[in-house]
Design a protein around this nucleic acid. Structure first.
Lengths: 144, 144
DNA sequence: AAATAAAAAGATATTAAGGTCTTTTTTTTC
DNA sequence: GAAAAAAAAGACCTTAATATCTTTTTATTT
């Protein structure tokens, strides 16, 4: 569904949100460990997100990553679009260059509904939502 | 959503279905041209599908590909599973090794619904359905 | 000011997907 | 039986995604 990079991005943002509630910051090393992601790879991804202000970063000792107030309300949709682009939102499911309401491919109508659901899910779920879920103890970010 | 290979596979099967109604056969060359796919690449994919009897093939002059009677009723789901595997059907959307009803990741519940829709679409749409749609003149496989 | 800790940036390596080219096998037709 | 047409098989190439390693920049602490 999403690229590996995108999975890392989502997990990293969730991790940052979870672990900087008290105004602390977390380092790439921590994030990588906490999300089972390769350190330098996730560093690249955080750089990107940081350029787009989806996460804040401070260099130097005691530096690290944290979220701005609004940062927790970033939706899955924004993360996915940032990392994987909007192909999933706009492209024909068969990869056809020409596929629209006027000239639909044979899968178009059926896929439209699925896509609508998918997009709604991506738009309506934010880092903050996931935060709450994890806090409730009923949801997990486990990898083994 | 699907891999390039999978897109080619779906389009190829549709093309074969559309063009062998009168007991004819179509060659890889024709299929590749007709679906804007690279010839040798689509050949590989058809070989795979052929091994799984999802399409029939005959060598030699006047040979080519065609579908068995039941062949038209193959669903998108079978094609996707054959080419891309069942990752889309079974994997956690965040790529977590541990994610289930008992230990759900924070996206699990929301994604479950989307996935249910997606799978239903894949199961309920067959080559034959697409065939009918294309025949109706209201659907297209256009690439420019 | 020096040492240190952290992210940023850049260079390089690895893997998997996508794609091409060549040879082999099978079948048909003449 | 020779020539030709087609798929099958295999070798190889290219590109993009993934991953790692090294250097640089920035900020902090002592």
């Amino acid at each position: 569904m999403f690229s590996r990079s995108c999975e890392y991005a989502i997990k990293a943002l969730i991790y940052v949100a979870q672990n900087t509630k008290d105004g602390k910051r977390v380092s790439i090393k921590e994030i990588a460990k906490g999300t089972d992601a390769p350190e330098h790879f996730v560093a690249k991804i955080l750089q990107e997100l940081s350029k787009k202000k989806m996460v804040m970063s401070i260099k130097g000792p005691n530096g690290g990553f944290y979220l701005e107030e609004g940062g927790k309300h970033v939706s899955l949709e924004r993360i996915v679009k940032e990392i994987d682009g909007d192909g999933m939102f706009t492209n024909c499911v068969l990869g056809l260059k020409v596929c629209s309401e006027k000239t639909p491919c044979p899968v178009h109508l059926e896929y439209k509904e699925v896509k609508k659901n998918l997009i709604r899910m991506l738009e309506n779920n934010t880092i903050s939502d996931f935060n709450d879920k994890l806090d409730s103890g009923k949801f997990f970010l486990k990898n083994e």
